[in-house]
Amino acid sequence: MSSLPLLGAPDKKKPKLTVYTIEECGSCHLKTKHGFKEGDFVHKREGQCHSCKGNLMITMIYAEAVKVS
């Protein structure tokens, strides 16, 4: 009843967030994005790149709002 907004409507809707892990190849800088799995951390070495055998490393882990289409 109370806490009625004076101007406009309050932002009540929270976007649903999904967490992604971004891997990057040290040589060809190819980026791959997949869902976060437990044990991932930033700067973790993830073996070899599929296309050039360079070293893969996790460069980012972030949450992104899922777009509802």
């Binding site: 882990i61 972030y62 949450a63």
Partner: peptide, 12 residues
């Protein structure tokens, strides 16, 4: 204090 947002990670 929640999971890092994309905008923040990309600001790196």
């Amino acid at each position: 204090i929640s999971v890092m947002r994309k905008e923040v990670a990309e600001a790196g």
